[in-house]
């Protein structure tokens, strides 16, 4: 049996929000937001690193950081599983190559050990003053990558360590394989790292060949993932497979000497150019960067 009882007030049908507003109001909203965005871009680009918008961003990044870490950790097993399946196909051939490489490297390590000991002895005798050396003069800060590089607009990642860990702008960032890039910005608990494959990166480097030619390593063709060594004079000999490392502060670089950057894959020269064109395969796999090490000078308070 239906009982209607006393009259029930019919609720007003909710209106479609933008329909209820006038065209002027709608344009005012979007105009204000666009203007605010442009104002923010202008101020952010012009103010100092400790300016108001940068501080606001640092505070916001601190608030968002736990969410980013949580999302990254939840996604990690799935991403690893995907990587495991795709890597399995290359594993067998890679295994054989690595075994051969181990034998070669063992012999090389024994020779290097002897050479390093000899160098230390000579330096002591000459009372030689060195620039900070990697890794002895640096403190390692291990950091998880919480926002990977998206690729099209700048090769940058966000890592889970920041100013509170002693990290500052321009600190070198590495992995066990080699040079990753440098710190571009810091927030209290996060840092933005510009990768070597970013168009704005440039690192003074030397080729570990008898003449030790030096040059500047920059990103290769966008999207290729390769690096390019520029400024190597034609008279120097470079071979495929030659290892390229950071040149160190002596060459005006921010990076300590001896960090592995990559190996020479291609080189060419033309009659018109005074330099060689050298292409490198990076030592670091930038597509699967899960964690990095930020190098902080030991002397820093």
């Amino acid at each position: 049996m239906a009982v209607t009882g006393s009259s029930v007030q019919r609720a007003a049908a909710p209106k479609y929000p933008s329909r209820s507003r006038t065209v002027l109001q709608r344009r005012l909203v979007v105009g204000f937001l666009v203007l605010l965005s442009l104002l923010m871009i202008t101020i952010y680009g012009r103010e100092a690193q400790n300016g108001g918008l940068h501080s606001f961003q640092a505070a916001g990044a601190t608030v968002l950081m736990p969410f980013q870490v949580a999302a990254e950790r939840v996604a990690r097993p799935f991403r690893d599983a995907y990587g495991y399946v795709t890597d399995l196909t290359d594993a067998k051939s890679e295994n054989e190559q690595l075994r051969a490489q181990i034998v070669r490297l063992r012999q090389q390590a024994i020779m290097n050990q002897g050479a390093a000991e000899e160098l230390r002895t000579l330096e002591r005798q000459l009372d030689y003053r060195n620039a900070p050396r990697y890794p002895a003069d640096y403190r390692d800060i291990h950091a998880e990558v919480i926002a990977p590089a998206s690729g099209q607009f700048g090769q940058q990642v966000v890592v889970h360590a920041g100013a509170n860990d002693g990290i500052r702008r321009n600190d070198p960032v590495v992995t066990a394989d080699g040079l990753v890039g440098k710190v571009a910005k810091t927030a209290p608990y996060t840092s933005l790292v510009t990768l070597m494959t970013d168009g704005s990166s440039a690192v003074a480097a030397i080729v570990l060949a008898p003449q030790q030619p030096s040059g500047l390593v920059r990103a290769g063709r966008a999207g290729s993932g390769a690096l390019q060594l520029t400024g190597v004079k034609k008279r120097f000999e470079v071979q495929r497979g030659d290892v390229v490392t950071t040149a160190g502060p002596d060459e005006g670089s921010l990076y300590p000497r001896g960090i592995h950057i990559g190996a020479v894959t291609l080189f060419s020269q033309s009659d018109t150019d005074i330099h060689k064109v050298v292409q490198l395969k990076p030592a670091v796999d930038f597509d699967s960067l899960h964690s990095v090490v930020v190098l902080v000078p030991r002397g820093r308070s």
């Binding site: 666009v34 605010l36 923010m40 871009i41 680009g45 990044a61 940058q156 966000v158 927030a187």
Partner: peptide
Amino acid sequence: VDTALLGTLGLSSF
């Protein structure tokens, strides 16, 4: 997005 990625504030907003 700009806050999480420490990018230029306002760029993605615009």
